[in-house]
Design a protein around this nucleic acid. Structure first.
Length: 115
RNA sequence: AAUGUAAGUUAAAUGGUUGCGUGUUGUCAAUGCCGAAAGGCGACACAUGAGGAAAGUCCGGGCUCCAUAGAGCAAAGAUGCUUGAUAACGUCAAGUGGGGGAAACCCUAAGGAAAGUGCAACAGAAAAUAACAGCCAUACUAGAAGUUAGAGAUUAAAGGUUAGAAAUUAAAAGAAGUAAAAUUACUCUAAUAACUAGCUUUUAACCUCUAACUGCUAGUAUGGUAACGGUGAAAAGGCGAGGUAAGAGCUCACCGCCACUGUGGUGACAUAGUGGGUCAAUGUAAACCCCAUCUGGAGCAACACCGCUAUUUUAAUGGAGUAAACAGUUGCUCGCUGUCCAGUAUAAUAGUGCGUGGCAUGAGGCAUAUGGUGACAUAUGUCCUAGAUAGAUGACCAUUCUAGACAGAACCCGGCUUAUAGACUUACUGCUUAG
RNA sequence: GGAGAGAUACCGAAGUGGUCAUAACGGAACUGUCUCGAAAACAGAUUGUGAGGGAGACCUUGCACGCGGGUUCGAAUCCCGCUCUCUCCG
């Protein structure tokens, strides 16, 4: 299973956002919920009022890329929703900051496999 | 050359690692996996993968359904100088009129206000059949005044006359008287006559009355008049001269305006001539409206097919009726469809789906030639370059420079509008500055 | 993606060309009376912003009806273009 599985339907997102635990960070908020499947599923959320379509797509791509970096180190069978924090300024976006922030929040959530 | 004007091109580039969507591509060979097979899924390789605005959704069209979207009227909406281009347009091109600029050039919703209706606050005499004030003429009334004539009164001057009369003169014209002898004196008489008084005439002044006339003032009535009337965004063509009772295009010159005719132009219109003072009427149509032209409605979340669920019972097809009524077709009239019967078999309606199609070869792009001022058209050659469905182009590293703006396809095209760092090309202008 | 509605004071909401919107009207906020205290009731004056003046209370003046243009003598209102908000369609 090399392809990333994604959350698609609206009720799946609501499920994770209502029942899951959440971990707030400067840039990305992470919701985590256990799942009966053998693999992880992710969803990426960027609000429509943050900025216009081009930058929104850019942020989504950065988050997905960062997830791919940590994919092999994560425990399986979780639903994860990564939401962009509205309060952060858009001009501060860069790949390395997102990487660092996501590592912190993953370790807080306890998903990271310790090797 | 700086500055400026117009048109157009481009929208950082190169290499490496890693990652994503799509594919009538190739391989996986008798064994990548599923399946009886057709085939499907997957892996690897290869190819390919976002703009000039993809945006706003402001117009126009294709496409789909509503009957094949049909006819007429009304309503509603849009457009609005002319001619052309186009599938069509509110777009574009070339021109016309108007405005701006020194110029290149730019801007321009630019039909009709004598078809009708509405509105024009405040101010102002009045915001639209011109009324009012004012000015002028005529008539009447009243008032005060003047002139002329008449009458009267008063005053003044001059003259005449009568009466009186100081004074002077005369007596060689007259006569009487007194005193006295005479002379003389006085009186009378005569003449002159200051002066006084009366009467009268003339002139002048003033007053009164009457009559007529004249202009003035006030009022009333009738008529003429639109120059003048503080305001306002806007006031009845402008300015000057003549003219008039007062005035006025009432007349004239110049300017503007309107009509007709001729010429040029397909036309908007331009230009020349002639005529017009009834030149009769302000602005607003981005107020209603009139005129001309155009528009049926809904939209790919349309729609078609497939699977599943629920409810209901009848579709295609054939016949009857096309009389009436009802429903649908956006209001009305027509037209059309449905109803009623027969009829086979499943169908219809509603909902739903990590469903399938619709879905990308098209009013396509590029080059050349021809026609046209141009938009554009025609012909030939050549190219095929996204197609997702929670939605694909990213990340990292290195190098270069001008240090990278606005910004992400979602059925597809033609435009418009809006956002936009710069770089480059072509043509043109010459206020000013420098040479 | 498509279709539609709107923007006026702190909040709601009138005003469809005209004397400055005295920004009507109703809430909210503020002060006072009443009360042991509150609520309710009653009374009161106000509420955006720039500039200037004043010790201060406050006064003067300009701009403001989402923003920018246009039509008109004159736009909150009419027309055009942007910005933002909300609703509906699977």
């Amino acid at each position: 299973m090399k392809k990333i599985k994604t959350l698609k339907m609206n009720y799946e997102f609501k499920n994770v956002l209502n029942r899951g635990k959440y971990f707030v960070n400067n840039q990305v908020i992470i919701y985590v919920l256990k799942n009966n499947l053998n693999y992880n599923r992710i969803g990426v959320v960027v609000g429509s009022k943050v900025c216009k379509a081009t930058k929104r797509n850019h942020i989504k791509r950065l988050i997905r890329e960062a997830y791919r970096k940590y994919e092999k180190e994560l425990k399986q069978s979780y639903d994860i929703v990564m939401m962009w924090n509205k309060k952060t300024e858009i001009s501060e976006v860069s790949f390395h900051k997102i990487l660092g922030n996501m590592k912190k929040s993953f370790s807080k959530a306890g998903i990271l496999e310790l090797k």
